[in-house]
Structures are given as C-alpha cells and as structure tokens.
C-alpha cells in the first residue's frame, strides 16, 4: 500500500484553535439568510432571574420571528477544516493541506417559538391610569430603571416585529422617556374623546381623516397625544396609501376592541352586567353606521354568561377568538416540549 502516502490530501490540526460555533439553520432561516433580505440577525438572552424563567434562555431573532437556541452536545469530534498552503516541503511543488482550525463539541439548534410578548410587556411596564401615574412612579421609585422603547427592546427576548405587534395590541405609548400600558378606563376615555370630536365635526372615521383634527379635544380631556396616536394605530385599517398625518379606522377592529374594553371595565361583580344595558352602552359609543356591527358574536371568546341575560368579561370563555391576539405563555411551553420530544426522537 505504498500509494497512501502520495495520494490524498494531507490533514493536520492547527495548534491555535479558533473559537467557532456551529448553528443549524432551519429552512425558513436559511432562505432568509441566503436571499440577503436582512442585514443581520440578533442573538438575545432574556433578563436573568425572571420569574418562570430560571435559566436565561438564548434566542435568535430575525426582524419578525424568534427562535429558541438549544445547545446540543456531541460525543463525536467535529472539526472545521480550512485549506492552507503546505509549509515548506522538500520538493518545491506547492500543495494544499486541510487544516482543522476548530473543534466544536456542541451544535446550536433552533426551534421557532411564539414568544409571550404581551406577557413580557405587562411584566415590565407600569400601568397608566392618568397623569397621577407619572408622579406616583417618579416619587415612589425615583431611581427605578426607565424603559424607553429602545431599552426595553434591547432586553426583550423576541424580535422587533413581535415587540411592535404587542405594543400595538396593548396601545403602549411613550411619555417622559417611559413606556406605559394604558388602563381600560384610559382607552375607553380616549375613544370617547375621538367619537365626540368626530360627531361634532361630522368626520367619517372609516374614511381618511386628519389625525390632528381631534388632537385638541383629546388633550383638553387630559389624555397624552402619544396615547391618542397609539390608539389610532391600534384601530387603523392599515391602508398603505394613506398620507402621512392621516388615518382611517376599521369597523372590524374598532367594534370588538371597544366592546371588550367596555365589558372588562363594567365586569366588576361575579354575576356580570345586564346584557341589554351593556349592548346599549357599547352601541352608543360607535358611529351610527357601525352600531349594527356591535353584536355579542363580535365578542366571541371574550365573555361568559354566568346568569341568563347577564354577561361578564372572560377571556377564557368559549373558543379562542379569531382576533390577532398573539398566543401567551402556555402556547410557548407546549410548543417547546413538542420540539424537545421531536428532537429526542431523531
């Protein structure tokens, strides 16, 4: 077997090993990377010591998707090879070696997850129930860390797209360098200002209107303009061709949103409110042309009937709503276990 010394590629191991990691790419992520539709990904870890998350989890984020990172150890020796010019051999014919520049004992695996973005925001942000909330926060905990959008996003274990969606869902707004979650009373109040101003000026909310037109009314009623804009963003029909400074609201979004807020606000006792009273209050706060959309069907999954003809707010009631509410904590966990079992079976 004298051929073995002459044939083949010389294989060697570098003494200065590089610190490299191997990251498995699921098809969706591979496509995103190779198509160069994004400039970079971000690797994030959640804040240490959060309740319910004993070990800091690492996640990998695209602009809109989050993947859980799992480190999988291997008992095999996995080498990363790189061609290198052979060092001065006896003969002058240049040859190329293969050098192992790194040995990786573990591979990083990714599993797509639906992060509990809304839960995370509710956990970290103060509730805004009026101007007094700001004074309370600054006097009670003057040294507490303020969370602007930038600083909270930096700490959030999910993508910027999922962050923005959750902020929009909750009508989160920024005031005094701090993000706030408005209470249902605040949201209902802002809506009252909007519908009042719209009625006074005969503005059709379903068509493009000037955002600034209602600003003074909203401010006179004591609501921050940033909150007003967050509410409009939550309720807008999202037509792309709207001009800057203009928006149009979607009845399909406004009607169930307002219904849920009003019902939650009124559901102070276990036996709930009289359905007919609630329906009247709800319809009275809608533009005339939208009144007929306010039916209990629009609130499917958001209420239960403890007693006949009385209803109460109950998000667990009935089937999951077909709204855009992202899944919360439970969904994430089951998903993770599903992935774990799947991987274990490989």
């Amino acid at each position: 077997m004298s051929t073995q010394d002459e044939s083949g590629i010389p294989f060697e191991i570098c003494k200065d090993q590089q610190q490299l990691r191997l990251l498995e790419l699921p098809p969706s992520l591979l496509e995103l990377i190779t198509s160069k539709r994004i400039s970079n990904l971000t690797l994030k870890s959640s804040l240490p010591g959060l309740p319910g998350q004993p070990a800091p989890n690492a996640v990998l984020c695209t602009n809109s998707q989050t993947y859980q990172v799992r480190q999988v150890q291997s008992s095999n020796s996995v080498f990363v090879l790189q061609p290198s010019e052979a060092q001065s051999a006896d003969d002058s014919i240049p040859s190329t070696n293969l050098s192992a520049i790194a040995q990786c004992t573990a591979t990083l695996e990714l599993a797509p997850i639906v992060p509990a973005a809304i839960g995370f925001l509710k956990q970290h942000l103060p509730v805004y129930g009026g101007p007094q909330s700001i004074t309370e926060l600054t006097t009670r905990t003057p040294l507490a860390e303020k969370f602007s959008k930038e600083s909270l996003l930096w700490n959030a274990p999910f993508s910027v797209g999922e962050f923005d969606n959750a902020c929009k869902e909750l009508c989160i707004f920024e005031e005094e360098d701090q993000l706030w979650i408005p209470t249902d009373s605040m949201l209902a109040g802002v809506w009252k200002s909007i519908i009042y101003a719209a009625t006074m000026r005969s503005v059709d909310l379903g068509n493009s209107f000037d955002i600034a037109a209602f600003s003074s009314t909203v401010e006179e009623d004591g609501y921050p303009l940033t909150l007003y804009k967050a509410v409009l963003a939550r309720l807008s029909s999202g037509d792309a061709d709207l001009m800057e400074g203009y928006t149009a609201l979607s009845s399909a979004i406004v009607v169930p949103w307002l219904g849920a807020i009003l019902l939650e606000k009124q559901s102070t006792s276990a036996e709930g409110v009289l359905a007919s009273d609630f329906m009247r209050c709800w319809q009275d706060q809608l533009p005339d042309s939208w009144r007929t959309y306010a039916t209990l069907n629009a609130l499917k999954g958001k209420f239960s009937e403890p007693v006949r003809s009385r209803i109460t707010f109950d998000e667990s009631g009935g089937n999951a709503p077909a709204s855009s509410t992202p899944a919360k904590g439970d969904g994430k966990n089951t998903r993770k276990w599903h992935e774990k079992f799947k991987n274990a079976r490989r």
Binding site: L43, P83, S84
Partner: peptide, 19 residues
C-alpha cells in the same frame, strides 16, 4: 443581552486553491 449576528464576514476570506 443583545448581540448582532452578521450574515457575512467583515473581511472576505479568500482560501488558497481547494483540494
């Protein structure tokens, strides 16, 4: 907690001929 992961090396890696 947040580290960017770039999709390509900063300086291109040019290997010698590949065996």
């Amino acid at each position: 907690p947040t580290v960017p992961l770039h999709l390509a090396p900063k300086a291109p890696i040019v290997p010698p001929s590949n065996p």
